[in-house]
Amino acid sequence: MSLADQLLQYLITGVSVGMVYGLVGLGITIIFNATGIINFAQGEFVMLGGMIAVALTAARLPLAAAVILAVAAVTMVALVTERLAIRPLRGASVIPLIIATIGVSLILQGGAKLVWGPEAVRLPAFSGEQPIRIGGGGIDPQRLWVMGLAALSVAAVQLFFKYTLAGKAMRACAINRAAARLVGISIDRMVRLSFAMSAALAALGGVVLTPVALMQCSQGTHYTLTGFLAAVLGGLGSGLGAVLGGILLGIVESLSAGFISSGYSKAIALAVALVVLWWRPEGLVRRRQA
């Protein structure tokens, strides 16, 4: 394989993993905009999506049904999380709420380990394992699924915020929560909606990535941290910024795993993120002022 072929491979791997980081970052941004808190359980939704889909296919459900049910189940988990861990703390300041999300992540991770054990599991690929040949190398078709579904979800989220009443109400909440309450927008409903949406995004990312990246119960933390970093790189508040940040992190990680060492890839991605933030502390996408 020539260097150019290798580079293409690494880029596709990086962009596809990066788009899943982007989905996590987008979810973190949505919850941050609605509530002002950082949900440190976000990566667990990725993990749960993958693990539940694997369990459902193991129970002989068709793959498509398993994918849809896994996303729905994780959305339910997020709604229960919101009800049991977030709503009782209504009126508390941001720090206790963030600590509550860390508690939730530990519970979800521990619970998943009790149910499924610590081993890595794998989901069958959506449309076969036969690589699509390009030049001297090949692309795993699952990578196209990852990129395609992630891009579709991001587009759907953008349309939701731009054109629907609920989407506009969520933006109003992000701009001015007190005024949003006074015009009659139920903040509780917006918070529920933000948890449901971001969990569905993360779960979809987890399900679609599991055929190529494997999944294990302890991996949620990595997705949380990388997704959080993606959201910060994007300027914390901009959904598209978070997606861009995620793709950047995925590419850096993949290139350094390919050309340097997989042992250092995550550290290198973190270092690059720090350099970017040093250069642009406001993030890649400048937020428009209200």
Binding site: A169, R171, A172, I175, A178, L182, G184, I185
Partner: peptide
Amino acid sequence: TQVPEGRQVFGELSVRDNLLLGAYS
């Protein structure tokens, strides 16, 4: 319904969307 002090319009949204959000419920 209260019109809050300092107007508190949703600056990044269009005038029309601000009005429609007033009818949210």
